[in-house]
Design a protein around this nucleic acid. Structure first.
Lengths: 157, 157
DNA sequence: GGTGAAATCTACCTAGG
DNA sequence: CCTAGGTAGATTTCACC
């Protein structure tokens, strides 16, 4: 489970790419794609799981099909910048399930959030009653996703 | 495989949540979490796959472990806005593997891109030799990810 | 790289509402 | 008639050779 920075050869990279496309590929199917025997393909997979290169396997869901109609990016600027404020904000971000990702970036804003909500009303609630109500938040700017040209493509390997 | 907007009950939602956390859960493990028999849990999984609620299963990789050290968000504004320009830009976005996601948003910029590169030099190349060299691109503003507070959490179900 | 036991999936069957 | 639980053959994994 360690991040033992092992070197990955070309076959490893192709195996990772294949498992990003379909995590349910069998060792045999992987092997035929990579010109390996099933046992060798399975062994490589185990090694990549143990090394931490593969963090886990997850189901990709259809947000719209599940009623998550509105996706938005929200840039947040804090009032003051201290470890205490950052901690408090971070805890709030962790807690809210509709905030699926959060980053600190270079540039003006302190945080970029990505959120999925059931509608504009729910997004409005998130912004006003959660973010702007938070003591350290100074300014919030949200942009709603209109169209997704490219959706969570595999990492470039 | 159709998006037959079937109604999902509470058990379905909990099953989806569990499979987001771990796509390799067995039908038996799912069943014991949901107070169902293994066969029923498996049947529900199949139904959710067929209905399109589950789009597929993917391996979550460790970007830093794979040498993708620099992650960035890039806002792009186009010179002029016509179907021809949009098409041309969209084709370029599809082609570049380091651009993993692309959205059109409300607000000033025309596109928001998310990119993973091996380093600052590769990001610089992407911005200058790919984006700014593109005939219809007017302006590019990139922000590098410094820290990820919350990483691709499951969708809120 | 191959093999076999154990685990898992899934199509089919039966029971209950 | 529809939904839940059980069963057996086929498939897959994984420790060992």
């Amino acid at each position: 489970m360690q991040d033992s920075r092992v070197t990955l050869d070309d076959t490893d990279l192709r195996l990772l790419a294949a498992l990003q496309r379909d995590a349910h590929l069998t060792a045999e199917a992987l092997g035929s794609q990579l010109n390996l025997s099933a046992s060798q393909a399975g062994r490589r997979r185990q090694r990549l799981e143990a090394s931490g290169a593969i963090r886990g396997y997850t189901a990709r869901l259809d947000p719209e099909g599940l009623g998550l109609a509105v996706q938005a990016f929200i840039q947040v600027t804090l009032e003051r910048h201290g470890p205490e404020q950052a901690k408090s904000f971070s805890r709030m971000v962790e807690t809210r399930p509709e905030i699926v990702s959060a980053w600190t970036l270079t540039g003006d804003a302190d945080y970029l959030l990505r959120a999925y909500t059931t509608g504009l009303r729910a997004l409005h609630t998130l912004i006003h009653e959660v973010l702007l109500s938070h003591p350290t938040v100074a300014r919030v700017q949200s942009q709603i996703v209109m169209d997704q040209l490219k959706a969570d493509a595999p990492l470039p390997l």
